[in-house]
Design a protein around this nucleic acid. Structure first.
Lengths: 212, 212
DNA sequence: ACCTGAACACCGTTCAAGT
DNA sequence: ACCTGAACACCGTTCAAGT
Protein backbone atom coordinates (compact mmCIF):
# COMPACT_ATOMS: atom_id res chain seq x y z
CA UNK A 1 0.00 0.00 0.00
CA UNK A 2 2.67 2.44 0.96
CA UNK A 3 5.29 3.04 -1.74
CA UNK A 4 7.84 2.95 1.08
CA UNK A 5 9.35 -0.28 2.48
CA UNK A 6 7.80 -1.79 5.56
CA UNK A 7 9.90 -0.79 8.52
CA UNK A 8 11.34 -3.97 9.95
CA UNK A 9 12.47 -3.46 13.51
CA UNK A 10 13.19 0.16 14.25
CA UNK A 11 13.33 2.21 11.09
CA UNK A 12 15.11 0.75 8.12
CA UNK A 13 13.67 3.32 5.80
CA UNK A 14 16.84 4.27 4.01
CA UNK A 15 15.99 7.92 3.71
CA UNK A 16 17.59 9.92 0.94
CA UNK A 17 18.04 13.63 0.35
CA UNK A 18 15.41 13.41 -2.36
CA UNK A 19 12.95 11.79 0.04
CA UNK A 20 13.31 14.85 2.23
CA UNK A 21 12.64 17.35 -0.54
CA UNK A 22 9.72 15.34 -1.91
CA UNK A 23 8.10 15.17 1.51
CA UNK A 24 8.95 18.79 2.23
CA UNK A 25 7.29 20.03 -0.97
CA UNK A 26 4.23 17.87 -0.35
CA UNK A 27 3.99 19.23 3.18
CA UNK A 28 4.38 22.84 2.04
CA UNK A 29 1.74 22.49 -0.66
CA UNK A 30 -0.63 20.81 1.75
CA UNK A 31 -0.22 23.05 4.79
CA UNK A 32 1.71 26.12 3.74
CA UNK A 33 5.29 27.34 4.03
CA UNK A 34 5.13 27.85 7.79
CA UNK A 35 4.38 24.16 8.29
CA UNK A 36 7.88 23.24 7.11
CA UNK A 37 9.97 22.62 10.20
CA UNK A 38 12.59 19.99 10.82
CA UNK A 39 10.49 18.38 13.53
CA UNK A 40 7.30 18.46 11.48
CA UNK A 41 9.05 17.01 8.44
CA UNK A 42 10.49 14.26 10.62
CA UNK A 43 7.07 13.14 11.86
CA UNK A 44 5.92 13.29 8.22
CA UNK A 45 8.72 10.86 7.33
CA UNK A 46 8.15 8.82 10.49
CA UNK A 47 11.65 9.30 11.78
CA UNK A 48 13.36 11.19 14.56
CA UNK A 49 14.09 14.88 13.93
CA UNK A 50 17.81 14.28 14.16
CA UNK A 51 17.72 11.65 11.41
CA UNK A 52 17.21 14.41 8.88
CA UNK A 53 20.64 15.76 9.67
CA UNK A 54 22.20 12.72 8.07
CA UNK A 55 21.00 13.97 4.68
CA UNK A 56 20.97 17.68 5.21
CA UNK A 57 23.42 19.98 6.97
CA UNK A 58 20.82 22.37 8.38
CA UNK A 59 17.39 23.82 7.72
CA UNK A 60 18.93 26.25 5.23
CA UNK A 61 20.53 23.34 3.46
CA UNK A 62 17.14 21.60 3.34
CA UNK A 63 15.70 24.67 1.66
CA UNK A 64 18.56 24.73 -0.83
CA UNK A 65 17.73 21.12 -1.62
CA UNK A 66 14.05 21.98 -2.10
CA UNK A 67 14.99 24.85 -4.43
CA UNK A 68 17.20 22.51 -6.42
CA UNK A 69 14.28 20.07 -6.68
CA UNK A 70 12.03 22.88 -7.95
CA UNK A 71 14.54 24.06 -10.53
CA UNK A 72 14.59 20.55 -11.97
CA UNK A 73 10.89 20.97 -12.76
CA UNK A 74 11.73 23.88 -15.04
CA UNK A 75 12.88 22.82 -18.47
CA UNK A 76 16.64 23.45 -18.75
CA UNK A 77 17.21 26.76 -20.53
CA UNK A 78 18.28 26.36 -24.13
CA UNK A 79 17.99 28.22 -27.38
CA UNK A 80 16.20 26.71 -30.34
CA UNK A 81 16.59 29.40 -32.96
CA UNK A 82 14.02 31.78 -31.56
CA UNK A 83 14.15 35.57 -31.23
CA UNK A 84 15.14 36.95 -27.85
CA UNK A 85 11.52 37.91 -27.31
CA UNK A 86 10.47 34.30 -27.77
CA UNK A 87 13.19 32.87 -25.51
CA UNK A 88 12.43 35.26 -22.67
CA UNK A 89 8.68 34.74 -23.01
CA UNK A 90 9.08 30.96 -22.98
CA UNK A 91 11.40 31.17 -19.95
CA UNK A 92 9.06 33.39 -17.97
CA UNK A 93 5.98 31.35 -18.87
CA UNK A 94 7.66 28.24 -17.52
CA UNK A 95 8.36 30.16 -14.33
CA UNK A 96 4.71 31.21 -14.17
CA UNK A 97 3.52 27.64 -14.71
CA UNK A 98 5.64 26.43 -11.82
CA UNK A 99 4.07 29.06 -9.59
CA UNK A 100 0.65 27.77 -10.62
CA UNK A 101 1.58 24.16 -9.99
CA UNK A 102 3.25 24.68 -6.62
CA UNK A 103 2.10 28.04 -5.32
CA UNK A 104 3.31 27.50 -1.78
CA UNK A 105 6.80 26.22 -2.56
CA UNK A 106 7.32 28.71 -5.39
CA UNK A 107 8.29 31.45 -2.97
CA UNK A 108 11.36 29.50 -1.87
CA UNK A 109 12.63 29.42 -5.44
CA UNK A 110 11.62 32.98 -6.23
CA UNK A 111 13.41 34.43 -3.22
CA UNK A 112 16.44 32.14 -3.26
CA UNK A 113 19.61 34.25 -3.54
CA UNK A 114 21.13 34.47 -7.00
CA UNK A 115 24.44 33.22 -5.66
CA UNK A 116 23.07 30.17 -3.86
CA UNK A 117 24.37 26.85 -5.12
CA UNK A 118 21.20 25.64 -6.87
CA UNK A 119 20.30 28.99 -8.45
CA UNK A 120 23.61 30.30 -9.78
CA UNK A 121 24.21 27.61 -12.45
CA UNK A 122 20.62 27.79 -13.67
CA UNK A 123 20.92 31.54 -13.98
CA UNK A 124 24.16 31.24 -15.93
CA UNK A 125 22.54 28.89 -18.41
CA UNK A 126 19.57 31.23 -18.76
CA UNK A 127 21.81 34.20 -19.51
CA UNK A 128 23.66 32.07 -22.06
CA UNK A 129 20.43 31.19 -23.86
CA UNK A 130 19.53 34.88 -24.02
CA UNK A 131 22.90 35.65 -25.59
CA UNK A 132 22.46 32.92 -28.16
CA UNK A 133 19.23 34.62 -29.17
CA UNK A 134 21.26 37.67 -30.14
CA UNK A 135 21.45 39.85 -27.05
CA UNK A 136 24.76 41.30 -25.93
CA UNK A 137 26.00 40.02 -22.54
CA UNK A 138 25.06 43.34 -21.00
CA UNK A 139 21.58 43.30 -22.53
CA UNK A 140 21.05 39.71 -21.45
CA UNK A 141 22.07 40.53 -17.88
CA UNK A 142 19.80 43.55 -17.65
CA UNK A 143 16.82 41.97 -19.34
CA UNK A 144 17.04 38.88 -17.16
CA UNK A 145 17.30 40.99 -14.01
CA UNK A 146 14.30 43.10 -14.94
CA UNK A 147 12.11 40.26 -16.17
CA UNK A 148 13.00 38.14 -13.16
CA UNK A 149 12.12 41.02 -10.86
CA UNK A 150 8.73 41.36 -12.51
CA UNK A 151 7.96 37.66 -12.42
CA UNK A 152 9.20 37.21 -8.87
CA UNK A 153 7.13 40.00 -7.42
CA UNK A 154 4.01 39.39 -9.41
CA UNK A 155 3.93 35.65 -8.92
CA UNK A 156 4.77 35.62 -5.22
CA UNK A 157 1.95 38.02 -4.46
CA UNK A 158 -0.36 36.13 -6.79
CA UNK A 159 0.52 32.78 -5.23
CA UNK A 160 0.04 34.11 -1.73
CA UNK A 161 -3.37 35.58 -2.43
CA UNK A 162 -4.52 32.57 -4.43
CA UNK A 163 -3.63 30.26 -1.55
CA UNK A 164 -4.14 32.11 1.68
CA UNK A 165 -7.86 32.10 2.46
CA UNK A 166 -8.96 35.50 1.25
CA UNK A 167 -10.46 37.20 4.27
CA UNK A 168 -12.54 39.71 2.32
CA UNK A 169 -12.79 41.69 5.50
CA UNK A 170 -11.30 44.79 3.93
CA UNK A 171 -12.69 44.15 0.48
CA UNK A 172 -15.46 46.64 1.18
CA UNK A 173 -13.07 49.39 2.26
CA UNK A 174 -10.98 48.96 -0.88
CA UNK A 175 -13.33 48.93 -3.86
CA UNK A 176 -11.71 47.80 -7.06
CA UNK A 177 -8.79 46.21 -5.26
CA UNK A 178 -10.24 42.75 -4.88
CA UNK A 179 -8.84 40.64 -7.66
CA UNK A 180 -6.06 43.12 -8.32
CA UNK A 181 -4.05 40.15 -9.44
CA UNK A 182 -4.95 37.54 -11.97
CA UNK A 183 -2.84 35.47 -14.29
CA UNK A 184 -3.99 37.16 -17.49
CA UNK A 185 -2.52 40.29 -15.97
CA UNK A 186 0.82 38.52 -15.70
CA UNK A 187 0.80 37.82 -19.42
CA UNK A 188 -0.22 41.39 -20.28
CA UNK A 189 2.56 42.75 -18.11
CA UNK A 190 5.01 40.39 -19.75
CA UNK A 191 3.94 41.59 -23.21
CA UNK A 192 4.31 45.21 -22.14
CA UNK A 193 7.69 44.61 -20.56
CA UNK A 194 9.11 42.77 -23.56
CA UNK A 195 7.82 45.43 -25.95
CA UNK A 196 9.21 48.19 -23.73
CA UNK A 197 12.58 46.49 -23.32
CA UNK A 198 12.83 46.09 -27.07
CA UNK A 199 12.19 49.82 -27.50
CA UNK A 200 14.40 51.15 -24.73
CA UNK A 201 17.17 48.60 -24.29
CA UNK A 202 17.59 46.60 -27.49
CA UNK A 203 16.70 48.89 -30.37
CA UNK A 204 17.51 52.02 -28.41
CA UNK A 205 21.11 51.69 -27.26
CA UNK A 206 23.49 50.57 -29.98
CA UNK A 207 22.54 51.30 -33.56
CA UNK A 208 21.90 47.58 -34.03
CA UNK A 209 19.62 45.75 -36.43
CA UNK A 210 16.23 47.28 -37.01
CA UNK A 211 14.54 44.00 -37.84
CA UNK A 212 15.04 40.67 -36.11
CA UNK B 1 20.64 61.27 27.53
CA UNK B 2 17.96 58.81 26.63
CA UNK B 3 14.92 60.34 24.93
CA UNK B 4 12.86 58.04 27.11
CA UNK B 5 11.81 58.87 30.68
CA UNK B 6 13.87 57.52 33.53
CA UNK B 7 12.12 54.47 34.87
CA UNK B 8 11.12 55.25 38.43
CA UNK B 9 10.44 52.10 40.40
CA UNK B 10 9.58 49.19 38.17
CA UNK B 11 8.83 50.30 34.66
CA UNK B 12 6.73 53.39 34.27
CA UNK B 13 7.67 53.68 30.66
CA UNK B 14 4.23 54.27 29.27
CA UNK B 15 4.84 52.28 26.13
CA UNK B 16 2.75 53.10 23.09
CA UNK B 17 2.01 51.21 19.88
CA UNK B 18 4.25 53.64 18.07
CA UNK B 19 7.12 52.94 20.48
CA UNK B 20 6.83 49.30 19.48
CA UNK B 21 6.99 49.95 15.75
CA UNK B 22 9.83 52.45 16.09
CA UNK B 23 11.88 49.99 18.09
CA UNK B 24 10.90 47.13 15.81
CA UNK B 25 12.05 48.94 12.68
CA UNK B 26 15.30 50.00 14.34
CA UNK B 27 15.90 46.42 15.41
CA UNK B 28 15.14 45.04 11.95
CA UNK B 29 17.42 47.53 10.23
CA UNK B 30 20.19 46.83 12.71
CA UNK B 31 20.06 43.05 12.86
CA UNK B 32 17.80 41.84 10.07
CA UNK B 33 14.24 40.63 9.76
CA UNK B 34 14.84 37.39 11.62
CA UNK B 35 15.88 39.33 14.72
CA UNK B 36 12.33 40.61 15.18
CA UNK B 37 10.69 38.45 17.83
CA UNK B 38 8.34 39.44 20.62
CA UNK B 39 10.89 38.46 23.25
CA UNK B 40 13.77 40.20 21.51
CA UNK B 41 11.74 43.37 21.03
CA UNK B 42 10.78 43.28 24.70
CA UNK B 43 14.39 43.23 25.88
CA UNK B 44 15.04 46.04 23.40
CA UNK B 45 12.31 48.08 25.12
CA UNK B 46 13.42 46.91 28.57
CA UNK B 47 10.08 45.40 29.44
CA UNK B 48 8.63 41.94 29.86
CA UNK B 49 7.61 40.10 26.70
CA UNK B 50 3.99 40.07 27.79
CA UNK B 51 3.87 43.84 28.15
CA UNK B 52 3.88 44.13 24.39
CA UNK B 53 0.51 42.46 24.24
CA UNK B 54 -1.06 45.51 25.86
CA UNK B 55 -0.41 47.43 22.66
CA UNK B 56 -0.53 44.71 20.07
CA UNK B 57 -2.86 41.75 19.67
CA UNK B 58 -0.25 39.34 18.33
CA UNK B 59 2.95 39.17 16.34
CA UNK B 60 0.95 39.49 13.13
CA UNK B 61 -0.67 42.61 14.54
CA UNK B 62 2.77 44.00 15.38
CA UNK B 63 3.79 43.48 11.77
CA UNK B 64 0.63 45.21 10.56
CA UNK B 65 1.58 48.13 12.79
CA UNK B 66 5.09 48.20 11.34
CA UNK B 67 3.69 48.17 7.80
CA UNK B 68 1.39 51.05 8.71
CA UNK B 69 4.40 52.94 10.07
CA UNK B 70 6.29 52.34 6.81
CA UNK B 71 3.39 53.46 4.63
CA UNK B 72 3.38 56.76 6.50
CA UNK B 73 6.91 57.34 5.21
CA UNK B 74 5.60 57.26 1.66
CA UNK B 75 4.07 60.52 0.55
CA UNK B 76 0.28 60.11 0.39
CA UNK B 77 -0.73 59.40 -3.21
CA UNK B 78 -2.24 62.40 -4.94
CA UNK B 79 -2.50 63.81 -8.43
CA UNK B 80 -1.02 67.19 -9.30
CA UNK B 81 -1.91 67.53 -12.94
CA UNK B 82 0.69 65.10 -14.29
CA UNK B 83 0.35 62.52 -17.03
CA UNK B 84 -0.26 58.94 -15.92
CA UNK B 85 3.33 58.17 -16.82
CA UNK B 86 4.53 60.84 -14.41
CA UNK B 87 2.22 59.76 -11.56
CA UNK B 88 3.18 56.14 -11.81
CA UNK B 89 6.87 56.95 -12.09
CA UNK B 90 6.72 59.24 -9.06
CA UNK B 91 4.82 56.59 -7.09
CA UNK B 92 7.27 53.84 -7.92
CA UNK B 93 10.31 56.00 -7.27
CA UNK B 94 9.04 56.76 -3.78
CA UNK B 95 8.63 53.03 -3.25
CA UNK B 96 12.20 52.50 -4.45
CA UNK B 97 13.54 55.20 -2.15
CA UNK B 98 11.88 53.56 0.83
CA UNK B 99 13.57 50.28 -0.08
CA UNK B 100 16.89 52.10 -0.13
CA UNK B 101 16.29 53.79 3.21
CA UNK B 102 15.03 50.73 5.07
CA UNK B 103 16.14 47.70 3.08
CA UNK B 104 15.43 45.20 5.83
CA UNK B 105 11.96 46.37 6.79
CA UNK B 106 10.92 47.00 3.20
CA UNK B 107 10.10 43.36 2.65
CA UNK B 108 7.33 43.52 5.24
CA UNK B 109 5.61 46.27 3.30
CA UNK B 110 6.28 44.75 -0.09
CA UNK B 111 4.81 41.38 0.83
CA UNK B 112 1.95 42.63 3.00
CA UNK B 113 -1.35 41.34 1.59
CA UNK B 114 -3.33 43.82 -0.50
CA UNK B 115 -6.33 43.34 1.73
CA UNK B 116 -4.57 43.90 5.05
CA UNK B 117 -5.80 46.86 7.04
CA UNK B 118 -2.81 49.18 6.50
CA UNK B 119 -2.34 48.40 2.80
CA UNK B 120 -5.87 48.42 1.40
CA UNK B 121 -6.64 52.13 1.95
CA UNK B 122 -3.26 53.21 0.59
CA UNK B 123 -3.84 51.10 -2.50
CA UNK B 124 -7.28 52.60 -3.02
CA UNK B 125 -5.87 56.09 -2.90
CA UNK B 126 -3.12 55.11 -5.32
CA UNK B 127 -5.60 53.71 -7.83
CA UNK B 128 -7.64 56.89 -7.47
CA UNK B 129 -4.62 59.06 -8.30
CA UNK B 130 -3.98 56.94 -11.41
CA UNK B 131 -7.57 57.48 -12.53
CA UNK B 132 -7.30 61.22 -12.02
CA UNK B 133 -4.34 61.16 -14.39
CA UNK B 134 -6.66 59.90 -17.09
CA UNK B 135 -6.59 56.11 -16.89
CA UNK B 136 -9.81 54.13 -16.90
CA UNK B 137 -10.50 52.19 -13.67
CA UNK B 138 -9.57 48.98 -15.46
CA UNK B 139 -6.33 50.43 -16.81
CA UNK B 140 -5.45 51.85 -13.41
CA UNK B 141 -6.03 48.49 -11.74
CA UNK B 142 -3.95 46.59 -14.26
CA UNK B 143 -1.13 49.08 -14.45
CA UNK B 144 -0.88 49.28 -10.67
CA UNK B 145 -0.86 45.51 -10.35
CA UNK B 146 1.86 45.11 -12.97
CA UNK B 147 4.06 47.97 -11.78
CA UNK B 148 3.70 46.86 -8.18
CA UNK B 149 4.68 43.34 -9.15
CA UNK B 150 7.80 44.63 -10.86
CA UNK B 151 8.82 46.92 -8.00
CA UNK B 152 8.07 44.34 -5.33
CA UNK B 153 10.12 41.60 -6.90
CA UNK B 154 13.00 43.74 -8.05
CA UNK B 155 13.38 45.66 -4.83
CA UNK B 156 13.02 42.74 -2.44
CA UNK B 157 15.76 40.85 -4.21
CA UNK B 158 17.88 43.99 -4.47
CA UNK B 159 17.41 44.79 -0.78
CA UNK B 160 18.26 41.26 0.26
CA UNK B 161 21.44 41.11 -1.76
CA UNK B 162 22.51 44.62 -0.77
CA UNK B 163 22.15 43.75 2.91
CA UNK B 164 22.96 40.10 3.38
CA UNK B 165 26.72 39.67 3.33
CA UNK B 166 27.40 38.60 -0.21
CA UNK B 167 29.20 35.31 0.09
CA UNK B 168 30.84 35.42 -3.37
CA UNK B 169 31.43 31.72 -2.99
CA UNK B 170 29.55 30.92 -6.16
CA UNK B 171 30.50 34.10 -7.96
CA UNK B 172 33.17 32.20 -9.86
CA UNK B 173 30.79 29.47 -11.01
CA UNK B 174 28.33 32.07 -12.31
CA UNK B 175 30.27 34.57 -14.39
CA UNK B 176 28.29 37.67 -15.25
CA UNK B 177 25.76 37.05 -12.52
CA UNK B 178 27.45 39.00 -9.76
CA UNK B 179 25.83 42.39 -9.59
CA UNK B 180 22.86 41.19 -11.61
CA UNK B 181 20.92 43.79 -9.71
CA UNK B 182 21.65 47.44 -9.32
CA UNK B 183 19.38 50.40 -8.84
CA UNK B 184 20.01 51.94 -12.26
CA UNK B 185 18.55 48.73 -13.59
CA UNK B 186 15.40 49.40 -11.60
CA UNK B 187 14.97 52.75 -13.35
CA UNK B 188 15.64 51.26 -16.76
CA UNK B 189 13.09 48.54 -16.15
CA UNK B 190 10.59 51.13 -14.98
CA UNK B 191 11.14 53.15 -18.18
CA UNK B 192 10.69 50.05 -20.30
CA UNK B 193 7.58 48.97 -18.43
CA UNK B 194 5.90 52.36 -18.63
CA UNK B 195 6.71 52.64 -22.34
CA UNK B 196 5.44 49.12 -22.95
CA UNK B 197 2.26 49.65 -20.94
CA UNK B 198 1.55 52.80 -22.91
CA UNK B 199 1.90 50.88 -26.14
CA UNK B 200 -0.01 47.74 -25.22
CA UNK B 201 -2.53 48.80 -22.58
CA UNK B 202 -3.24 52.51 -22.93
CA UNK B 203 -2.89 53.37 -26.62
CA UNK B 204 -3.60 49.86 -27.75
CA UNK B 205 -6.94 48.77 -26.33
CA UNK B 206 -9.71 51.31 -26.74
CA UNK B 207 -9.44 53.74 -29.61
CA UNK B 208 -8.64 56.42 -27.04
CA UNK B 209 -6.65 59.58 -27.34
CA UNK B 210 -3.48 59.42 -29.35
CA UNK B 211 -1.77 62.20 -27.48
CA UNK B 212 -1.84 62.82 -23.76
C1' DA C 1 27.17 5.36 7.43
C1' DC C 2 22.90 5.99 9.43
C1' DC C 3 19.77 6.68 13.13
C1' DT C 4 18.42 8.18 17.85
C1' DG C 5 16.95 10.61 22.78
C1' DA C 6 18.18 14.01 25.89
C1' DA C 7 19.31 18.58 26.47
C1' DC C 8 19.94 23.65 25.42
C1' DA C 9 18.56 27.99 23.99
C1' DC C 10 15.20 29.92 21.63
C1' DC C 11 10.03 31.11 20.04
C1' DG C 12 4.58 32.93 20.43
C1' DT C 13 1.01 32.99 23.51
C1' DT C 14 -2.51 31.75 27.57
C1' DC C 15 -3.53 32.47 32.11
C1' DA C 16 -3.77 34.18 36.63
C1' DA C 17 -2.04 37.73 39.26
C1' DG C 18 -0.46 42.09 40.45
C1' DT C 19 -0.66 47.76 40.23
C1' DA D 1 -5.62 50.29 31.89
C1' DC D 2 -1.17 48.60 32.03
C1' DC D 3 2.37 45.46 33.35
C1' DT D 4 4.21 40.93 34.88
C1' DG D 5 6.16 35.68 35.79
C1' DA D 6 5.15 31.03 35.22
C1' DA D 7 3.80 27.69 32.16
C1' DC D 8 2.73 25.32 27.63
C1' DA D 9 3.65 23.81 23.19
C1' DC D 10 6.52 24.67 19.80
C1' DC D 11 11.36 25.51 17.22
C1' DG D 12 16.69 24.41 15.32
C1' DT D 13 20.60 22.21 16.69
C1' DT D 14 24.69 20.00 19.68
C1' DC D 15 26.27 16.09 21.76
C1' DA D 16 26.98 11.52 23.15
C1' DA D 17 25.39 7.14 22.20
C1' DG D 18 23.68 3.40 19.74
C1' DT D 19 23.51 0.08 15.16
Amino acid sequence: MAPRQELSQKNRNKLSRRDLTTAAIALIEREGLDALSMRRLATELECAPMSLYTHVRSRDDLIDAVVEHLIEQLAPPEWSGESWQQVTRRTLEAYRDLAVQMPNSFELLALAPYDSSPVAPHLSRTVASFEQAGLTPEQARQILGILDGYATGFLIVWARSSTRGRSDEYAATAPGIAGLRDLEMFDRGLDALIAGLDLTLVRGTDGGEVLA
